[in-house]
Design a protein around this nucleic acid. Sequence first.
RNA 1: GCCCGGGUGGCGGAACUGGCUAGACGCGAUCGGCUUAAACCCGAUUGUCCCUCGUGGCGUGUGGGUUCGAGUCCCACCCCGGGCACCA
Length: 817
Amino acid sequence: MSEHRYDPRAIEPKWQEIWERERIWEVSNDEVEGAPKSYVLEMLPYPSGEPHMGHLKNYSVGDAVAHFHRRNGRRVLHPMGYDAFGLPAENHAIRTGEHPRDSTAKSIAQFQTQLRRWGLSIDWSREFGTHEPRYYRWTQWLFLKLFERGLAYRKEAAVNWCPVDATVLANEQVIDGRCERCGNLVEARQLEQWFFRITDYADRLLDDLEDIRWPSHVKTMQRNWIGRSEGAEVTFADPETGSEYPVFTTRPDTLFGATFFVMAPEHPDVLRLTAGTEHEQAVRDYVNKALTESSDERSDTDRTKTGVPLGRSVINPVNGERIPMWVADYVLMEYGTGAIMAVPGHDERDFDFATTFGLPIRRVIDCEGELPCSEDGRIVNSHPDFDGLHNRDALEKIVDWLDEQGKGHRSINYRLRDWLLSRQRYWGCPIPIVYCDACGMVPVPEEDLPVLLPDVEDYAPKGRSPLAAAEDWVNTTCPSCGAAARRETDTMDTFVDSSWYFLRYTDAANDEAPWDPEVTNRWAPVDQYIGGVEHAILHLMYARFFVKAFADMGLLDTQEPFNALFTQGMITRDGAKMSKSKGNMISPVPYVERYGADTARCYILFIGPPEHGADWTDKGVEGVHRFLGRLWRLGADVAASTGKQEPLGPLDSPEGDDLELMRKAHWAIDKVTEDMAGRFAFNTAIAAVMELVNDAYRYRGTVHPQTLHFATATAASLIFPFAPHTGADVYDMLTGDRVWEEPWPAADLAMLERDTVEVVLQVNGKLRARIQVPADASREALEAMARDQERIQAHIDGHEVVKVIVVPAKLVNFVVR
RNA sequence: GCCCGGGUGGCGGAACUGGCUAGACGCGAUCGGCUUAAACCCGAUUGUCCCUCGUGGCGUGUGGGUUCGAGUCCCACCCCGGGCACCA
């Protein structure tokens, strides 16, 4: 019908140029009276290669939220940056010979081009990469603050070592015993490394989850990762050697059922206890075997339990029983005390072990069913003081008794370990520490920061940091005494960089400090954070820890970095995860070129609920493109007939089709607003605008021009957060105004209510008729009208009406016999 | 094994608190219009069954239950996705 053609290739650059030239999305740090702030943030991209569909989804969601908040009168901070240090860039460099500095710069340039091409409403004035000295200078500064407070420290420990990437890894980066990055089996190595004392914050990290609006499964994952267990530490003694062995148990109520005692192969006393005895050789062999096993093999719960006796025993403090000591690999050195009391009657693992080695099994709780059984019940076979008590009550009493006797006390254990942050890799933030023979470990003075990452030609991993080869850089003088000294050559885990970037955005140009608390407290915390669920533990836990630590130092007021979190699902192709190795990556580029950014953005939001994964189909993209084209052409046609005008005061008292279309427009306003504000239901929000446009086409021949004008301008206004160029263009054609300066439309509630409504008439719950009735018809009136209906009479005549259910404005149901 | 999600047309998905007719919106398909023709565009139909075409029967993974009324609540089971997994 229209000769007008929807041409995103003309429309999109036009609006992007205006936004960029007038710096529309930049926001100042000044406080504005009466304008509440909103900090909307998507997780920053890792610049390796080109942006992919996951980025398009992430930023389409975030941009829609940012636009919605802006038009609802908030001052929105919506920045962007790059998480530029890290292994993938370095591994890429090793493969291709291209320096990480260069490949990263190239990738960042691609992101910059693409993100602008997508028309995102970003405040580019705050942009940075975490690999830039002006940023990592402050990463180092923050490290030193943590070091000052004892929250960063060095210690020797058994750590995870990836032989392929030739570096240590944090616990969080080991998945099923394998390196998160390269997938190879991880080895245990005894090394001195840098740690952050995140375990000091375990309780606060756990408790404060209550106060933030995060998806419950993410909270659950964090709770599990912290793994707080309440119980008791109980001391088992060996009077012969005079040694005492504390164990941690969550079930001190089962102490009387302990029939043996097990130590981890790594326990330092295992070899000592057997030295010179007949058991020495067997124990030595067993320990050696256990230590060389991969953590993968060792953590296989299905395999038969193994272990060997130590030939020694300890005394159970509650009943004086001597129980034999064993060493077995199902006991872990890292958790608790590295030794356990074994209660085979009430613990599945101990039961398996006891069954394998013919050790006694004793029931001490009268729980239902066969042993082993971990249910609650009454205490039996234990001690006259406790027998008959419910085990939970007995637990408290037993711990009190142990405490009085000095044989134990209440205790809490966590699964969470300190965060191992040092990496023996090149492409990372240098750790600002100097080693001096006289002064020991000396922090680099603040005024000497940043410690620049030196240019190194050979950055291949060799088991020690490639920085160690940069002799000129390594050799320095001690900041404290001036003598010759050496720099720390390890670099920081990339997660350190990304644990505070959201704070830097608030005051990105500051070269006196990482941020000015005055300024940052105006923006922080992030009001809405958006990103992939794959960061549920690592990044989100580390960032929370940093914020709490900085708050303790007085650098921040907030205790939590991200007030609300939204996790988006993955985009797949033919049901399969996209990956470079599978060769099924879809780049957004051809879609953006062919259909425009608005189509690509709308489609990725329309495809389904954004928290779910979704499969990309080319046909679906075309459908959304058709819709945007329909809207645009409608706008062009209406503008051609009405000219530019203010959104009308439409007809004073619209009737017929005018009224229907007006109602639809207000319905759509209400629906989109609900879907945006309450939840992230972008798919149904877009569907509502589609319905409005469909109705506009349906009624275009029969309504007044001003009604059509109103409906079309409303559709443009509502689609703007998802398709900003099209929304702005259509709105401009119709009104000459800038849609982003318009307040978010408000639905006229009177338009949502109807004078008459359709009421469903049922007999025995089956639909038998429908009638139009006044919306405010009373129950009695409704029932009377229903009884008058022929079809209802046909179904109730000759039956006894037992009950009539009337739901005003909804239905009438006759229950008959 | 444990803990979360989730099973709705040919497909992606709607249906907020049990009732405003399950299947919005989009894709695909079929038909019609426009066109010399095609694409684009516009319009109609599209859960299923029936020689009964009816404001007909049946229909939200399976089997039970609660209720006047269940996709929605309860119980049991099957399947799919995710997380955790010798953490004492």
